[in-house]
């Protein structure tokens, strides 16, 4: 990997950093060296301090019986009580399994399809790229509530297009909303439908950043399009793919509420195969509306995601340090 090699040469050697003594003067020297870049990062750092880190103290709500009149600190500390409802019934296993499996399939399918489409798209003329990119992105603007209506138009038992089509070729229609089996497929299709423009765009932008010379050289050697994709494009996109993967791993315990709630039309029959942590929390707390308990669910999702990311990042570091996230 030429590019990475290039970085290695210019990166400060690790021993430099390690031997740096923790003395004030040295440290000031280090800061001086980095002052310019630190300055560039400062607006973002401050922004996150104010908008992300300061409100983060609210995590304590997850451990409290939060009362509005007593305030966040004044409310009674109740330990892990708010977390119990997540594990109270035999739903715990089901929602965890569903959340993880859906995320895994979204990650695998989304990455594969996104990469494939981006590579194919890079072989089109600019005019067509514009047209297809725009079309692929259209569904991004359709909210899940509306996507739920559309799904109903296709899958409705009596009036849906799918059943009408089946009947017209002599096959019996099925009441899709009364079954649990079809929903994993429907949700994956719906998810890809809505997000594929997004994934394709990211990887397409990655391809745009690849040096043309590589392709020229390969073409002179008589490489086919497929070979070039396999030997040049995909390896050079790996850093980007890795980042996207690690970012997805962090959200492994989180799901898209709208997709899992509105697309199956909140059908009771679909719950066994569509219920994820986020929809369970919604259904369980619809009556109570308890912020302590919903914060607890969020904290649980974050913590698991955090551990997974640390593991993933560690693994990537072992393998190739430059692709690691931090």
């Amino acid at each position: 990997m030429k590019e990475n090699g290039m970085f290695d040469k210019t990166a400060p050697s690790r021993t430099d950093v390690r031997t740096e003594k923790r003395t004030f003067g040295r440290r000031r020297g280090r800061f001086k060296r980095n002052a310019g870049l630190f300055g560039l990062s400062l607006p973002g750092v401050l922004y996150l301090l104010v908008f992300a880190y300061v409100p983060m103290f609210g995590i304590v709500i997850a451990f409290k019986n939060y009362r509005y009149d007593k305030g966040i600190l004044g409310s009674e500390w109740i330990g892990l009580k708010n977390f119990e409802f997540l594990f109270a019934s035999d739903n715990a296993w089901r929602i965890t399994r569903n959340t993880v499996l859906y995320n895994l399939s979204f990650i695998v399918i989304g990455t594969a399809v996104g990469l494939a489409l981006a590579i194919l798209m890079s072989r089109l003329g600019r005019h067509w790229v514009k047209v297809h990119q725009t079309v692929l992105f259209l569904p991004y603007f359709v909210s899940w509530v509306v996507a739920g209506y559309i799904a109903l138009a296709f899958l409705d038992n009596s009036a849906g297009f799918l059943n009408r089509a089946l009947e017209s070729v002599g096959l019996p229609g099925r009441n899709w909303y009364f079954e649990k089996a079809p929903w994993p497929y429907v949700l994956v299709v719906a998810h890809e439908w809505k997000s594929i423009g997004f994934g394709t765009l990211i990887y397409f932008a990655g391809i745009m950043g690849i040096n043309q010379d590589y392709y020229e050289a390969a073409r002179i050697d008589g490489a086919t399009g497929f070979q070039m994709a396999r030997k040049i494009t995909i390896p050079l996109l790996m850093p980007l793919v890795t980042i996207m993967l690690i970012l997805s791993v962090g959200n492994m315990f989180r799901g898209d509420f709208g997709l899992h709630y509105f697309v199956p039309n909140d059908s009771s029959f679909a719950i066994p195969t569509t219920d994820i942590i986020d929809t369970y929390v919604f259904r369980a707390l619809r009556e109570l509306g308890d912020f302590g308990m919903s914060s607890a669910a969020g904290f649980y999702q974050s913590t698991v995601g955090f551990v997974l990311v640390l593991l993933a990042n560690y693994a990537v570091r072992k393998f190739n340090e430059d692709n690691a996230l931090f």
């Binding site: 950093v17 870049l37 104010v50 992300a52 409100p55 609210g58 962090g250 969020g298 904290f299």
Partner: peptide, 29 residues
Amino acid sequence: PDYGYRRVTSFYVFFTMLFSGGLIPYYIL
């Protein structure tokens, strides 16, 4: 790659993707 605070800043940024205080402290802020 030569930025001295690279890792710590990356972590600082990434951490906010996972953990948030939720709507109440955000609203108060």
